[in-house]
């Protein structure tokens, strides 16, 4: 008797399970995403491929080449060479080796100038290792053009600064000369 009861119970629960699968068969939205044709909407916080935002007003990328991001990176992904100096500084090479990157967000948090971001691009697979080496031309928002413009902006600014400095120096020299002359005249 116990055998029959337990058998009946088992039978009923198998039927219940079959009812659940049947409901899923007819009643549920299918969740497959036909990937190459449909792409998922990823969150705006998605930690995808990097970019260096370009600042249109200032005519340059924000990065000042302070290397804080490179220092924060646990795996040494970021290398850069600085250009310019002082207030007018940027990078003329900024390379990220994505093959080592963990997409951990530490570099982004480290940057005090909001100069490096992660985009929502998630299709990073490639058949060529070279692709994962991101140079500044690929990283900068606006590509090589933006880099070129940054360079021009920085150079112009530097020239301006140098000119201003020279002018200031000349003025100072003049003043000094004037003072000397006055002194001389005094003497």
């Amino acid at each position: 008797m116990r055998l029959i009861v337990s058998f009946a119970q088992g039978f009923v629960s198998i039927l219940k399970g079959m009812a659940i699968t049947f409901l899923n068969l007819v009643g549920r939205r299918k969740i497959t995403l036909q990937y190459p044709y449909q792409r998922p909407n990823v969150s705006p916080r998605w930690r995808g491929i990097f970019y260096l935002p370009y600042n249109d007003e200032a005519g340059r990328i924000n990065c000042v080449g302070c290397t804080l991001c490179a220092q924060a990176c646990p795996t040494g992904v970021i290398t850069m060479t600085k250009m310019g100096a002082g207030k007018h500084a940027s990078v003329n090479a900024f390379t990220m080796d994505l093959g080592r990157c963990m997409f951990c967000n530490l570099c982004i948090e480290a940057c005090p100038f909001d100069a490096i971001h992660m985009s929502t691009r998630f299709e990073l697979a490639s058949v060529d290792r070279g692709v994962s080496l991101l140079t500044i031309d690929k990283l900068a928002q606006g590509g090589a053009d933006a880099v070129e413009r940054t360079k021009r902006t920085i150079e112009a600014a530097l020239e301006q600064e140098a000119a201003a400095k020279a002018a200031a120096a000349a003025a100072k020299a003049q003043a000094a000369a004037g003072a000397q002359a006055a002194e001389g005249a005094d003497a």
């Binding site: 969740i31 497959t32 036909q34 044709y37 449909q38 909407n41 990823v42 705006p44």
Partner: peptide, 16 residues
């Protein structure tokens, strides 16, 4: 930061 759409977009066939 605003919340992204949490559900997947409804399947639409975009192809050739």
């Amino acid at each position: 930061m605003s919340l992204p759409p949490l559900r997947r977009p409804a399947p639409t066939r975009t192809g050739f």
